[in-house]
Design a protein around this nucleic acid. Sequence first.
DNA 1: CCCCGTGAGATTGTCAACCATCGACCGATT
DNA 2: AATCGGTCGATGGTTGACAATCTCACGGGG
Lengths: 211, 211
Amino acid sequence: MPRRQQVLDILRSEIMTGRYAPGARLIEATISEELGTSRGPVREALRQLEHEGLVDAVPYRGAVVLDVSDEEVQEVLIPIRLTLESFSFGKALELMTEDDYGELAKQLWLMEEGARKNDLQQVVEADLAFHEIVIIGSGRHTMQVWRSIWPRIRSYFIRYGRFRDLESIVDEHRELLDALRSRDRDTMMGVLERHIAVPVPASRPVVGEER
Amino acid sequence: MPRRQQVLDILRSEIMTGRYAPGARLIEATISEELGTSRGPVREALRQLEHEGLVDAVPYRGAVVLDVSDEEVQEVLIPIRLTLESFSFGKALELMTEDDYGELAKQLWLMEEGARKNDLQQVVEADLAFHEIVIIGSGRHTMQVWRSIWPRIRSYFIRYGRFRDLESIVDEHRELLDALRSRDRDTMMGVLERHIAVPVPASRPVVGEER
DNA sequence: CCCCGTGAGATTGTCAACCATCGACCGATT
DNA sequence: AATCGGTCGATGGTTGACAATCTCACGGGG
């Protein structure tokens, strides 16, 4: 695995878990020293974080960790996620094989195990893997957009404690898998929307279906 | 302006205009030589192109220009664009000042001039600037997603000649500006949807509203 | 007292040369 | 015919050095 990818994973994780909070500066020299690498890979990782919307970088001024507003999550990121996943789960209904279902079941199992051990990290990883298995079947561009929005959504969830208990996360994914296997499009979409929609802190109705 | 930005702009433009067609390889050494710069900025520009979905890069194998399928444009990228711009134009109704309208009018004027001269380049630039003025008011994350999807949409349009005549592009933006000024939300959204939706080559009905 | 230029320090941007690493291709061997 | 090396092309990463730019504190005018 390329070094820049390792650096990226580390930094992203440190941002999501709060080691770098919104407003914190990310200095190339410091990071490269800490991670025992040269500035090259660090620069590229920072640029990637910029694309994932976790960081804002201004020329000659450096990179700063960004915050995400409730409004943008509810009205922009979540609706986009719904667009992406509706498309992907729809295609999955048509072209997923038994093997693919097996892969999903595997992630579900890992998720269950994580929930038993109360290991948020493991649950979150399996959650991500589950969705990527579905999305990867619908083309590069869909995956591309997905990869650019999930870190923000996840980061928002973790930062503001919007994670319901681990058990219900597992349950929802079990429902998703069952719905996929049922091959019934309407059931599928219903389950998916409920999964993606998020209880709002204390403002608007539910997910911002546009118009 | 940083060198990598210049390189990025040049490469993106060359991809959109077809100098690099889908499947073409982008070799760091060659490009850096052609542009009289070192490999560093070229690498970073290539990574950015990857994030804009114009290029696919595999470790140790290099970058290749991507194609975009009708299906993904219609069912993923355009619906996402609609989500983004619905949000942005909605916010613009609330918070745009006379000065901002002035900026929009300026771009409209440039667009008209470009259409008169039959200068696609200029029309396209003003078109982009027009939308960015509106979107920039709705936050970093909205802009971030926008910047990651427009190159693909534009590139698809140019590649497959989906550009209606320049005059009608100008007309549509004049309508958009008028609708903004009217301050009527429903009119606004109607005009916007018609502007973003695209006549499909020879398949589905219209824009892929999900479900 | 406030405003503005100036300069030092910090940090990013770019360069150049170099070598390791990996993927693709080609031919020789079995 | 299939496989195993070896070579070549290109990327991944390193080092060290400088240039370019921003920030901010300092001190001289107004």
